[in-house]
Design a protein around this nucleic acid. Sequence first.
DNA 1: TGCCTGTTCCATCAAATGATGGGTAAATTA
DNA 2: TAATTTACCCATCATTTGATGGAACAGGCA
Lengths: 213, 213
Amino acid sequence: MATILEKARKDPTSMKGRILAVARQLFGQYGFHGTTTRMIAREVAIDISTLHYHWGEKGDLYEAVVLDICKDLGKKLIEVEKIIHGMPRNDRLSISIEMMTDYLFDHPECSNLILFRYFGMTREGDGLDFKIPEFTADVARSMGLAKDKRNVPPHVRLEVLALMNSIHNFVSGESLFRPMVNMNRENYIQLVKQTLTFIHIPAFAQGSDYARE
Amino acid sequence: MATILEKARKDPTSMKGRILAVARQLFGQYGFHGTTTRMIAREVAIDISTLHYHWGEKGDLYEAVVLDICKDLGKKLIEVEKIIHGMPRNDRLSISIEMMTDYLFDHPECSNLILFRYFGMTREGDGLDFKIPEFTADVARSMGLAKDKRNVPPHVRLEVLALMNSIHNFVSGESLFRPMVNMNRENYIQLVKQTLTFIHIPAFAQGSDYARE
DNA sequence: TGCCTGTTCCATCAAATGATGGGTAAATTA
DNA sequence: TAATTTACCCATCATTTGATGGAACAGGCA
């Protein structure tokens, strides 16, 4: 089962993979209730029953999409961690911001879907609230803000959340925020990185002092 | 027309006001497509046709809710501005954070709905994308980060957005983030305020130097 | 060739959803 | 009091939506 899903995930030319890719986009744009199975099928140019044949019911497809995105995000975080490993703290931070921001602007449906899950609810209640991995502790450790991921102080957790959510916000809200600063995409992305660095580096640098008490 | 709406908005005992209040909650929790007119009617304990009688079609009610919330938010911002007027910059900032955070934790549907509008889309496209007021420039000016609201530098706009969105994130994501730090509501709110202050005060203080160039 | 398996579409269903017309009773006005 | 307006509910409609059964079709394999 894991192998089949893995294969479909990797192969964007297979029908299953194509459906998943389109579902990512649409669920990201319109949310769970805002996306209909017919919208997805139409976009893939297949019949609805074909969609059900591959992925089962709507909630299952949605779950697959969310887990798919979490997996991508987890891999990206590991990739970033390998690169920044051993660097001074400020470099670790700014490079992490730079890389994650670039990645998410390339895959905005990730930010969209994560924000949807964070701040929205589904009518089905807990039916769709399957467990999704939680990264804050890992991020905190890889930033050197905690010795091990078991023991991360609360204020550090919130700081990491603030940073990660800020990235998601700027990525996901580009269509609203970019007109506010009247920039093209490239410059907007650049300014977002600068702003995030500008805001969070001093905070974390300052935090490194009193976090040791 | 404006007077009627105004009256309904103020009077939470009138049928129109009760519907609006419930619609705020539900649209905030489930978003536009996730909320059905029947859910709202059931919660108010009235018939669906009564709802249509008072507010017209679903999109109209949603628009009324969003405008209602923006109005509340605008009033709150003005109230805050009056209090912090003339204070030193750091006090202005920390008091603003404190007051807005308290207010939004008391009215989480505001944060919910704003995030929904920022990061989600509606199938009806531009039909529901009516104009909503934009506060970043006003906030920037009242913080003393810009001389007038006509001329706010782009990086300041993004900093203000980052701060405001961060508050919304922590309010709206309480059900997910609070368990991460394992706190009761009161302590969580306190920690959120500390964290936001801790992150943004140094940034803005630093910004005051090079923003003058 | 004939059979099986996997993949796709067509036709269709039941439930949910947004919306409306008409009736009714209370409140308001003349 | 009679007429009119306001506020509300019941019954119902048309459309959308999630979902399924069964037929068609292609490719591998005996």
